[in-house]
Amino acid sequence: MAKNKLHASSGVQKQTSLIPAYIPIVLWVLFTFVLIGWIVAASLSTTRDIFLGKTLEFPTGLHFENYSKAWYSQNVSVFFKNSLLYSIISVALLVLVCAPASYALSRFRFATNKLIQNGFVAAMGVPVVMIILPLFSSVSRFNILNNDTSIRALMIFLYVGINVPYTTIFLLSFFSNLSRSFEEAASIDGCGPVRTFWTIMLPLAQPGIITVSIFNFINIWNEYFMSLIFANSNATRPVAVGLYSMINSMKYTGDWAGMFSSVIIVFLPTFLLYLFLSEKIIAGVTGGGIKG
């Protein structure tokens, strides 16, 4: 309430006194727009025009064929499909694995409850380099890296595993905030705990599940280090590694416009998600978990 009172007093005078506050933030935002906007322009330009400094003038029109070229001949379509496969399946599996765990941790009292919670929180601070070597040696001993399908399954397995602690901890607060009266009513009606969870509690935690799934999707879509090590073949690469390999080959082909359109293709899915859901994402960063 007091906040509203303050805001009500913010008239023209208040805004004028805030000009020094606007300047740095407007410059920063402007820079971000120039950065993204120029890349978009360059992705529709030609390498020649980019080097002539005429990226924003489009003397030869808009070159949408950069996108189709990148999509078909530069293998971007394959990387894109791989990333979609990895992220969507992992995100779905993460809900199936973590929501029940989170529910159990938030609802039931048992000896190892606190230990598991602390373990998961600690795992969120474990750098990937601490676990990557044994994972790699197990994986290569089982001959997983010789076959594209098993690599794909492996990537999903790794993405699920690495995000289990974060997802479970994130959902914890959502389940703790649900009233116990739902379960009491369900048990009076003779509904068992497993069915109560799937039909009543899980739908109630939907806002949290959607937010954490958006984060998981973005994190997995952008993941680079593990896929560089495990999924670095033409058929299995996700977009981040694919983009890196394309940039490297670009040094020889010199197709700059094509490279910028590939950057946009990689950037677009998470950006579109953000465009529509930025408020939810921002609320999730600060409210739900401690990891972005």
Binding site: N222, I247, W256, V263
Partner: peptide
């Protein structure tokens, strides 16, 4: 929203934007 935006972009794409542009 604009200032947070770079956090949702792939680091490879963002680094490429800086390096190549």
């Amino acid at each position: 929203a604009v200032i947070y935006m770079p956090n949702i972009i792939s680091a490879v794409a963002l680094a490429t934007m800086w390096l190549q542009y």
